[in-house]
Design a protein around this nucleic acid. Structure first.
Length: 490
RNA sequence: GUCCCCAUCGUCUAGCCCGGUCAAGGACAUCGCCCUUUCACGGCGGUAACGGGGGUUCGAAUCCCCCUGGGGACGCCA
């Protein structure tokens, strides 16, 4: 293939949706795999919905994910401008051409009138479709409408019997021209409608392949019609499967986190998000699942895209993210976790070398247990909370004498050690074992609960060495007193 | 309502184009065992799917038709 040019064209709605991110990713992978160009274009035709910083947000999320683009509003390119709001004159010019050759006409119907007739048709069980009322308006009629103060929109005139879409993913799909009503290409305020703007932009930007969500499949015949009316060759289309929520409906806010930034804010690693998204609707030829960005680029082809919709599975994302966290370099991971630790006041904003290496130890001790960085901060509470409460499932360890005996043994052994002697607590544990005669779970769980109030957490060794003798001791006393209270109440 | 797309374990999927090698493979989740003097990590094993009905064929998860189910689109939203 030659001169491959693909684009991602988001509307700046304030955040980058997970589904859009996947669309962007596949376009990017396609471009990088084939050595083509990846273009970012902002579809801000609808001023009403335009959010000022929205464009910036999208660009940031892109950068975070590691997607780079060759042409775009921020870096220019030979086919700019790359914002639709800056291309209004171009759309007008192309609409003019269609009017001149009889493939478009002015329509003076008001939104109210159109809504009314739509309802009428719907109630009669018909497909709502423009009836062509303004198709043959005389100059006098037009003037009369103008006098009324009506501003016309421009409609595309559909003449074709049938339109065939050659889809890269779905094969040949045909549409009956009869079912496509004359649609608006220029709104009455002069702005281009989506179906028109995309065509003009894709044409002028020499886009070779349009890979987008399946929800656009039924728009495609309209767009092909415009290409044809303009005497142009349409690009290759490929309609990708939708991403659904667990209830099998289109992924939306009520399914929870659906923006890329929400995952970034929780401290997911970008390569994990990229990897997971890549597997939604695509599979690698060797069935490998953990793929680096280079492997993704190398293996990506549209032939391996699936046709059926995929459910966004947070559980699997968390597993995959956990894989990346475990593989991550400790220093890097610590850097990613720092903001979360600071936010809770666990560590200072400015760190000495010593504090930094302490932070690395903390993160390292938790690395195998989390899926994303915010969880590190959750679990790190065991290093900072010296008066922990005992969670429900850990209560049972406060209720038996043999468990309490282990805790008491821990208290005594700890007291017999100096702060320097403690180290990673190995000797302490041995001492407690000797004293209590317990081993395994019955040895470890009481100690764990006495130290943290929880049944799970980092290695006891990490707790001993990072918390130190004094605080360990005060925690054990604290928990022991809680246990005492508990027994009294019974 | 009309049009369009889709249909393999609970979930993501391989296999389908080029029918037999599929008593359907992998991954997540789940269950069990092992490792670890604990939870986790890791290792091993188990449960679990070709939506239904017709064809075509010696033979169908794979090809055809119908049904059902799900999704999408029908906007002066993108």
């Amino acid at each position: 293939m030659e001169n491959i040019r693909v684009r991602f064209a988001p509307s700046p709605t304030g955040y980058l949706h997970i589904g859009n991110a996947r669309t962007a990713l596949f376009n990017w992978l396609f471009a990088r795999h084939h050595g083509g160009r990846f273009i970012l274009r902002i579809e801000d035709t609808d001023l009403d919905r335009h959010v000022a910083e929205a464009e910036e947000v999208i660009i940031q999320d892109f950068a975070w994910l590691g997607l780079d683009w060759d042409e775009g509003p921020d870096r220019g390119g030979p086919y700019g401008p790359y914002r639709q709001s800056e291309r209004i004159a171009i759309y007008k010019e192309y609409a003019r051409r269609l009017i001149d050759c009889g493939r478009a006409y002015y329509c003076y119907c008001t939104p109210q009138e159109l809504e009314h007739s739509r309802q009428m048709m719907l109630s009669r069980g018909q497909t709502p479709q423009y009836e062509g009322r303004c198709l043959h308006l005389s100059e006098d009629q037009k003037r009369a409408f103008e006098q009324e103060g009506r501003r016309p929109s421009v409609r595309f005139r559909v003449l074709e019997e049938a339109v065939v879409v050659q889809d890269l993913i779905r094969g040949q799909v045909s549409f009956d021209g009869q079912t496509i009503g004359d649609f608006i290409i220029l709104r009455s305020d002069g702005r281009a409608a989506y179906n028109f703007a995309v065509v003009v932009d894709d044409l002028l930007m020499k886009i070779s392949h349009v890979l987008r969500g399946e929800d656009h499949l039924s728009n495609t015949p309209k767009q092909i019609l415009i290409y044809q009316a303009l005497g142009a060759q349409p690009p290759q289309f490929g309609h990708m499967p939708m991403i659904l929520g667990p209830d099998r409906t289109r992924l939306s806010k009520r399914h929870g986190a659906t923006s890329v930034s929400s995952y970034r804010q929780k401290g997911y690693l970008p390569e994990a998000i990229m990897n997971y998204l890549a597997l939604l609707g695509w599979s690698s030829p060797d069935e490998k699942e953990i793929l680096s960005r280079e492997e993704l680029i190398q293996n990506f082809t549209v032939e391996r895209m699936s046709k059926s919709a995929a459910i966004f599975d947070l559980t699997k994302l968390n597993w995959m993210s956990g894989c990346y966290i475990r593989q991550a370099d400790r220093k890097r991971l610590t850097k990613e976790c720092l903001p979360f630790l600071q936010e809770r006041g666990y560590i200072d904003r400015q760190l000495t070398d010593r504090e930094m290496s302490r932070a690395e130890e903390i993160v390292g001790s938790l690395q195998a247990k989390v899926s994303y960085c915010a969880q590190v901060a959750d679990l790190a509470s065991v290093y900072f909370d010296d008066t922990p409460s005992v969670d429900q499932e850990s209560r049972i360890w406060l209720e038996t004498n043999e468990s309490i005996a282990v805790m008491q043994a821990l208290e005594e052994v700890l007291e017999s050690f100096s702060a320097e002697e403690l180290g990673d607590g190995h000797e302490v544990i041995k001492g407690v074992q000797d004293k209590s005669g317990q081993k395994g779970k019955k040895l470890y769980m009481p100690m764990r609960v006495a130290l943290t109030g929880k049944m799970s957490g980092p290695e006891l060794g990490a707790i001993f060495s990072l918390v130190g003798r004094e605080r360990c001791l005060s925690r054990v006393k604290h928990i022991l007193s809680l246990a005492e209270q508990l027994t009294k109440h019974e």
